[in-house]
């Protein structure tokens, strides 16, 4: 997983290929990318997502931040179409995702859950191949193309050597990367990641964020729930800060990850420094 950018695959037209998303963060065309408006969702009368408005520009990585229970996973599930919002709209490049049929939506949106496991005996390669289901007839088996894509995806997440391993025998971090590969073979235009760096060591965390940035540079819109504010500061173009099911701040990293917001949301004091090499913000807590 050391050099994911050497493995870049060509994508459809409209992809702002080659340009670094960091420099384009303000240049997103309105209407493209993900637009969430007034989305509300409640369970048994308890409002969990409370009128969320936010956008994730195309070809950029948007971080979804917020304390435990702030509604990050719930919002991602709503955007993925797993649950239906009580109110509000979710659009991708102008297409309404909520009313879209499931199968076409599954060819456009991929979602890596916070936790997913199975008791079934399944190889890593087979697990990745599941991501091809929306792209082929439900009666068809894995084609040669599917196999090639799955092997490519495993290579991209640095798991090529594990293709034949039983999923149950992999470490948590290895499994996490297999799930990421499963999302990649779905060839999504919108990639939703719920704590993708969960279980990963620091090198793998950075490699995953690198991979995500490469995908974004290829034109994919990425919305990733993250806990590590510094990881978000280093790798995201935009961040959306949730608290109690509402958006409390959203925008470029430099505007959202400031001491006032962090203290208001987490109740933790912090200083913002500059990374000596990249110039990106670095948060020092306490």
């Amino acid at each position: 997983m050391s050099a994911p950018s050497t493995d870049r695959r060509a994508r459809g037209a409209g992809a702002a290929r080659g340009a670094d998303a960091l420099d384009r963060s303000g240049a997103a065309q309105p209407g493209a990318g993900l637009a969430v408006e007034r989305v509300r969702w409640s369970v048994d009368g308890t409002l969990i997502v409370d009128g969320v408005d936010c956008t994730a520009p195309p070809g950029a990585v948007t971080g979804l931040l917020g304390p435990n229970g702030s509604g990050k996973s719930s919002l991602l599930r709503l955007v993925a179409g797993v649950t239906r919002p009580d109110d509000g709209t979710v659009r991708l490049g102008g297409t309404d995702l909520v009313s879209m049929a499931r199968r076409p939506r599954a060819r456009v949106v991929a979602f890596v859950e916070q936790d997913s496991s199975t008791d079934l005996p399944l190889t890593a390669l087979d697990a990745v191949l599941l991501g091809r289901i929306p792209h082929r007839s439900l009666l068809a088996g894995d084609g040669a193309d599917d196999l090639r894509l799955a092997q490519d995806a495993l290579a991209r997440v640095g798991m090529a050597a594990f293709a034949g391993r039983d999923l149950g025998s992999l470490s948590g971090g290895e499994r996490q990367r297999v799930h990421m590969a499963r999302a990649l073979v779905q060839e999504p235009r919108l990639l939703l990641l719920d704590e993708p760096t969960n279980h990963l060591d620091i090198a793998a965390q950075l490699a995953t964020m690198d991979l995500v940035r490469t995908l974004a540079a290829d034109g994919v819109t990425v919305l990733a729930a993250l806990h590590d504010l510094n990881l978000a500061a280093g790798a995201c173009d935009h961040v959306v800060m949730l608290s109690g099911g509402r958006v409390v701040a959203a925008g470029p990293v430099e505007q959202v990850l400031v001491p006032d917001v962090v203290e208001a949301v987490y109740g933790v004091r912090c200083e913002v420094l500059r990374h000596p090499r990249t110039g990106r913000p670095v948060l020092v807590l306490g």
């Binding site: 076409p104 859950e113 496991s117 697990a127 599941l130």
Partner: peptide, 12 residues
């Protein structure tokens, strides 16, 4: 294989 949520996101 990975539960209802995964099935839903695969278009089922």
């Amino acid at each position: 294989t990975f539960g209802d949520t995964a099935a839903a996101t695969l278009g089922i």
